[in-house]
């Protein structure tokens, strides 16, 4: 059953990574109403950043892969670098996209950024080795006295632990006064402005926090799979996570858990067990068609997801002596 154990532990790692993505997007879209159609580039930059600071100095154009700024940082520094890279990219992109503009324009601009980023990385080979991508990223802490299987599960546990920690942290943030301000901004932008909330600053905060979480998820992913290339971050990947939070529930962290469990696992992993049909690659196309249809169906039937956001009603505080 070793193959099964390996497979399940891999699924757990993917679940943890997708959970981080779901949390990030839910904070941005579910709470703040920022439609980040370029989410995947923040995960990608985290993955690239973590890869180049673990791969060691680049051998230049002569070696089999070239990249900028090679370094050999010990675990867990690459993850911090990944999160920082996500945050920095978010600050740069946010500087022109988080200003006050129509939300549909904003989303279109972010989608354009995502489409162009991939063209640039593919064309500019010295940056991150172009469309071949980076390979041979070493796994962290391999000296630990663990069997291959033990290491697998230890890594899965580590990803889950980080996912859980971020989950609790972001849920706490969302329930804080700051989180309430975010929802006010999402639902009634004018009223929120009238109350003195700085809309642009709040959007920037959400965007940068989300970017950092995305970068972290990319770092965790690249340290696990050991390679990263433009194939891994097509614009459509963003929509798997969006579909997950649409299915699960927008603005509800339990819904995010449910959606992340259902969508990437059931619709992208289970088809691996189905018999191969047609020519190689047809199954992949069909998977994406199903994701797209599921996405449209969710918007039609349950726009707020299976576990919708709970309504907060204004009611008087219970008096102390009654409790």
């Amino acid at each position: 059953m070793s193959a099964w154990s390996f497979y399940i532990s891999t699924l757990v790692v993917y679940f943890g990574v997708d959970l981080l993505s779901g949390i990030s997007l839910n904070l941005q879209y579910g709470y703040a109403g920022v439609i980040n159609f370029g989410y995947i580039i923040f995960q990608a930059v985290g993955a690239y950043a973590a890869a180049v600071v673990t791969l060691g100095p680049s051998g230049g154009a002569a070696s089999f892969q070239q990249y900028v700024f090679g370094a050999n940082l010990p675990f867990p520094l690459p993850l911090l670098v990944a999160a920082a890279a996500g945050a920095v990219l978010a600050a740069v992109v946010g500087a022109f996209s988080m200003r006050r503009m129509r939300r549909d324009y904003q989303a279109a601009v972010l989608l354009i950024v995502s489409l162009i980023a991939i063209q640039v990385v593919e064309a500019d080979v010295p940056l991150f080795n172009g469309s071949n991508g980076l390979t041979g990223v070493p796994r962290p802490l391999l000296w630990l006295p663990l069997s291959l299987q033990g290491y697998q599960w230890a890594y899965a546990a580590w990803v889950l632990a980080l996912g859980g920690a971020v989950y609790l942290l972001v849920r706490w943030l969302s329930h804080s006064p700051w989180g309430r301000a975010l929802r006010a901004m999402r639902d009634q932008e004018d009223a929120a402005t009238a109350l003195g909330l700085n809309i642009t600053a709040m959007r920037m905060q959400v965007f940068i926090i989300g970017g950092a979480i995305a970068g972290l998820s990319g770092g965790l992913l690249v340290e696990y799979i050991g390679a990263w290339s433009p194939d891994a971050w097509g614009y459509a990947e963003t929509f798997v996570i969006f579909t997950a939070i649409f299915v699960g529930g927008v603005g509800n962290y339990r819904g995010v858990l449910l959606g992340v469990l259902l969508v990437p696992i059931i619709f992208l992993e289970l088809p691996r067990f189905l018999p191969q049909i047609g020519y190689p690659g047809l199954t992949d196309s069909l998977e994406w068609i199903v994701i797209g249809l599921l996405w449209m169906l969710c918007l039609l039937l349950r726009p707020r997801g299976l576990l919708p956001e709970r309504r907060f009603l204004a009611r008087p505080e219970p008096t102390r002596d009654s409790a």
Partner: peptide, 13 residues
């Protein structure tokens, strides 16, 4: 923006 998301899903399909 919901409509825009619909068009995106449609584009994917």
């Amino acid at each position: 923006f919901e409509m825009m998301m619909v068009t995106l899903g449609l584009g994917l399909v």
